[in-house]
Design a protein around this nucleic acid. Structure first.
Lengths: 237, 237
DNA sequence: TCAAAAGTGTTTTACCTACACCCATGA
DNA sequence: TCATGGGTGTAGGTAAAACACTTTTGA
């Protein structure tokens, strides 16, 4: 019986919004397209998903092909499917986002003919993008803003060692507002997920700042607890 | 040039997770399937999206056909696309969720031959569902749990007039834990989004409770402010 | 000695939590 | 008069917000 049913084949794409932080500026990873439609336009890295490929894996694969980046923790954001979003017909796209550390790995090496180049663009300078990518980009920005407000994921964007001022600058860049230095430090240190290193900045012409390191062990413990607080089974059963 | 490009046609489905609250119990809207695959199984209402149909509209249309419900505020939840989630091939599905008021509109009238019946099932009694619908259902539950913790959307589920105890019961049903009565009332009344009516319960064999009404005007004002607090432009520029 | 950023505490306010008794009603 | 749920207040703790000066460093 079931053998006689029609066989479906979904055609759809994924697009990736990758955020980075460099020189105190929040940036997003864009590509310059090398193929029509929207040839020569800037766009988010994204492409069609293969028939036998999971969506998450597809996002990983395409991101690697288009930028050379590997093993990025991508999270699904939203699916965009306006009927006219793509000039070649009805093509829906599943958007993913990620935050990544830019220490060293600045060299973006696309290995796809579809891409002329890949580069980091300050989020405040993002021009009109191909397709509905501007919309996708903006939704991601909102997402990470909300997210850092309830979970200290900002560390993902910083180098291993960082100063509290760098951390604050990052928060300010994402939230696009000034924060109070004393309150910020108090709060961050209170979480107990930062480990102060015996190391200070070198060669700065002002008082050298202490370096801190993110304590992933404690972070996981804390975050697990906070999550389970929201979950069922606190009282029931 | 662009005319020569291939034409895409996405094939994909939507599934709807609709929550309701009745007799102090949180329920989810299920259907009994009348067609293979998974004939006679219980499932979430969902079906294929038409080529020229927006995704949100498709969700509305399919929900109506499968249940008779109209004008429900559906929000996109997540897209599920495991390669083997559907026996007829690679078919991804976009899940939507909604909370709805059940006063009166209990009569579910499917107008599709794909559906044997539609009915409300207590969330604690949901059995194994067709496809990956159990997974989808569970993700929706998590979502509304998180959501009522930061935004008092629970009103959507209650009748126009309700007592504070009914409201508390709803919170307890969603969060699956007991809440303190005094603290709960204090907090809810402090929001200033409840209007006490000059009306009490009738014919109960205990002290009659006051009825309250949700003040959407004030809710919007408050919620707008809270949202804009998160958004850019508080300090910058 | 200057410029520039690092680093540091206190007070006030709002909110969350825990907790126990009297009140109104119909049966 | 009893059973049932409605309704109320206070005290202690914790977290957020506002706010300004001293310290260190290299140039």
């Amino acid at each position: 019986m079931e053998q006689e049913l029609p066989i479906f084949e979904s055609v759809f794409s994924v697009d990736c919004v990758i955020f980075g932080f460099e020189e105190g500026v929040l940036k997003v990873l864009l590509i310059e397209r090398n193929e029509p439609p929207f040839k020569d336009w800037w766009a988010l890295p994204g492409y069609l998903v293969e028939p036998n490929e999971g969506i998450d894996e597809a996002a990983q694969r395409i991101l690697f092909k288009f930028t050379g980046l590997k093993d990025i923790f991508l999270e699904q954001l939203y699916t965009f499917g306006d009927v006219d979003r793509h000039p070649q017909g009805r093509l829906i796209t599943i958007a993913y986002y990620a935050m990544m550390r830019l220490n060293g790995k600045k060299d973006l090496k696309p290995s796809s003919a579809f891409v002329k180049k890949a580069f980091w663009c300050p989020v405040s300078d993002v021009p009109q993008l191909a397709f509905d990518h501007t919309q996708i980009f903006e939704k991601s920005l909102q997402k990470i803003r909300r997210k850092i407000s309830y979970s200290p994921i900002a560390f993902e964007l910083l180098p291993e060692k960082f100063t509290l001022t760098q951390l604050q600058n990052l928060y300010e860049a994402i939230l696009n507002k000034k924060l109070d230095k004393r309150n910020f430090r108090k709060k961050m240190l209170n979480y107990g997920i930062l480990k102060e290193l015996n190391e200070k900045q070198q060669g700065v012409s002002y008082r050298a700042a202490a370096y801190y390191k993110f304590d992933r062990r404690k972070y996981n413990k804390l975050f697990q607890k906070e999550l389970s607080f929201m979950k069922e089974d606190d009282a029931g059963h």
